[in-house]
Amino acid sequence: MPAALTIPPAADDEYSCWLSRHPRSGSTARRLLREFLALHASGERFLDAAESVLAELVNNAVQHSRTAPGRLLLIRFEHKPDHLRLEVHDAGRTRPALRAASPDDENGRGLRLVQELSIDWGWCPREGGIGKVVWAAIAPEDRDRRVSTGNRPCGQGTGCCPLRDHKALYESSTQPVLVEIEGICAPATFPRLPEALAALWRSLQLLPLGEAQAATMRDALTHPRAVGLAAESIRRDGRLDLSFRMNGRLHSALIRPAEPPPTQE
């Protein structure tokens, strides 16, 4: 059986435990999570997604961390009213990264599952020690999570495209950009680049892109460095151009600086 060395929790809403790097540590972690959430009145609202995410994080640490024999894993749970934070600490230095997996691959989908089931996730170096921490935040079941890629087709005209609808959600700024999905959505102007990226991703989610293209677009538009990379492309090339194929045709999703309004004579 995998070893489990419990650390006294810092508070009722926190729990930490050491686990051995063993193939069955994922099931041990899930059992400890169920016991932890059972202590909270709202705990079961997080359970299904949290169990799946925690199992993936632990399995990744067991299978992919390049560490010396005998190194342990630390799991940590923190229950808050609006989300559950999961952490897995290991001594490895390999950075977790999303990768494309073909439909026939048995592996390679773990972090994509983590991304789909969590409201946010990431990693950072461990403070005061070697290795890293991979974490995820889980929303309760009655709150919307990330919207998965749908298969709803999109017709022509502005009624099918939410670009203009999202524009009203964001604050104004002094660096407007124009967003267009060529042949599908008419151009729409947004006050700032971050809001333009968010609206473009939400619009692309309505298109039947397929799993591989959707994953590429999601990484390009929602990655923590997406705004900086997009800004660099616009400075260098005058626009950000993301191409995709749909219904046998090549389309482009474009972001470019908006034309300044004409000055009054």
Rank of each mutant, 00 (worst) to 15 (best):
L19W: 11
T67V: 15
G155P: 14
P224F: 06
M246D: 11
R76N: 10
I234E: 11
P23G: 06
L33S: 02
R218E: 07
E180I: 01
D241T: 03
A215N: 12
P140T: 02
L242V: 03
K132H: 10
S52H: 14
I138D: 04
V133D: 12
P224K: 06
N151Q: 08
V58K: 03
V88W: 07
V88N: 09
D120A: 15
C160F: 10
G26A: 15
V227A: 13
T158Q: 15
H83W: 13
I181D: 03
G108M: 00
A188P: 00
R192S: 15
L111R: 04
A50Y: 04
N59T: 01
C161V: 13
E56C: 03
R202T: 04
V134P: 09
R99I: 07
P2C: 14
A226E: 04
E127Y: 09
L39H: 09
G155Q: 10
V179A: 02
E141R: 07
C17E: 14
V53D: 00
P140Y: 00
L19H: 11
A198R: 13
A55G: 05
R245P: 02
L33C: 03
P96K: 05
A97H: 04
A55I: 08
L111M: 06
L117C: 03
S118K: 04
L47I: 02
R24N: 13
A29E: 10
P260V: 05
R76P: 01
P125A: 11
V114D: 09
V133G: 07
S203E: 10
E44W: 00
T28R: 15
S102K: 13
R235E: 14
E44N: 03
D105R: 09
W121V: 02
P257V: 10
I75L: 04
R239T: 00
L193P: 03
T94A: 12
E180M: 01
R66D: 09
L169M: 10
E35N: 13
I255W: 01
E180C: 08
L57T: 01
P257H: 09
A3H: 10
A199Y: 02
L242A: 07
